[in-house]
Design a protein around this nucleic acid. Structure first.
Lengths: 212, 212
DNA sequence: TAGATTGTTAATCGATTAACAATC
DNA sequence: TAGATTGTTAATCGATTAACAATC
């Protein structure tokens, strides 16, 4: 990466999209792809793609395009997907259960190691090959399995205290689905998903176009 | 709304966050809130909040703040949450099942009316009080229940064809969770969630800060 | 070589932040 | 009234788009 260039959040968020599309392209058998063709497939302008990639290095060949295989490897390394992160899910409700069964995380190189819940009925159960532990065991299990990233799918009222425990135990990344703003130290990476935004924004646009 | 002002996507996406926070504030009993205090709670600068709100009207009182009750009603109307949209979920896999059980949608005023799946084992089941219908019945059910918005949680390989059927039947909004770029006509509002982005971006930042 | 396509610089566009007059 | 806080205009910042030289 070129150290003097600031990489925008928008660029980082597009890389996983390129990554997945490139894998499809590879499965289809193509060995070379142009920014023009990739752009058409992911819905991003070719200039944007070239600019995004160029902030990390020169991955393409002028007059030719990008070698699919190499670009997949390069983007994978930029995103750190080769590092085999260990992850855990706190909160085995409907959403936590769904994410525990989500195939795509494995294909991205994340290893789901543990689930946590407070419900005695759930503790000890095996979901998708992974055990549900009591939340009281978070310190022990995070340490034992070397958990790097936690997914929070507990109710909003418990999310901050669970986050505190996880951070205390050394978790360095949190992917939060609880509808609340979590506070974590600066050295912990926090990404929050807010599922009410998507549906509400559709409602907003429909309200304007589509009078009842 | 002031017709000559262009409302940014970012503004629309912040409104649901303000909305939920204001409801919490109302539950806590406060009747008035300043942009300063609201900003602190949602993690947005007060200037940004005032600008967002001001693009739709004058909802505050100078020297006083915003009346919580009024602001909730106003933002709700801006977002169209008072319109009682009928929604359906296509794909009752893990994620579709989780979303079918998600409480927050109801509290936002969305009515889940139907689920669709191709699996004969699932057809006829009742999930959270809502029936699973065969995908072949989409035209009939969308018409009968007047479905406005559909959530797509089918596998990527089927997502576009399901979207085509839904659009054909008159669905005007699609919230897509399948990891693929859907194409829909201009008059259909499409919002896509890409669950690989959140986790990948955490991986990106951790890779830089946290050498193994 | 000629055509194609990248990587990079400059121009444009849009969103956020700062400042402040209006006014409760 | 004085203090507080909004709504709005101007300044800044950052991201995208356009253009093109480099080169395969």
């Amino acid at each position: 990466m070129k150290d003097h260039i600031v990489i925008s959040r928008a660029t980082i968020d597009r890389l996983p999209v390129y990554f997945r599309c490139l894998r499809h392209i590879q499965e289809e058998g193509a060995e070379i792809i142009s920014s023009e063709d990739l752009g058409r497939r992911v819905g991003v302008t070719p200039e944007q793609i070239r600019k995004d990639l160029a902030s990390f290095g020169e991955f393409g060949k002028k007059g030719v395009g990008y070698y699919v295989r190499d670009l997949i490897r390069n983007i994978g390394e930029i995103l750190g997907l080769h590092r085999n992160w260990n992850i855990a899910i706190a909160g085995v409700g409907h959403l936590g259960w769904a994410l525990a069964n989500y195939r795509n995380f494995i294909s991205l190189g994340f290893n789901l190691k543990a689930l946590f819940d407070v419900d005695p009925m759930k503790i000890g159960q095996i979901v998708n090959g992974v055990e549900v532990f009591s939340c009281e065991k978070i310190p022990q299990i995070v340490d034992e399995y070397d958990i790097h990233i936690a997914i929070i799918t507990v109710p909003a009222s418990n999310a901050q205290s669970i986050a505190n425990v996880l951070v205390e135990c050394g978790v360095k990344g949190i992917w939060n689905f609880a509808p609340i703003r979590l506070k974590v130290p600066d050295d912990v990476r926090l990404v929050s998903e807010d599922l009410s935004v998507g549906l509400s924004s559709i409602s907003y646009y429909l309200s304007r176009e589509y009078k009842l």
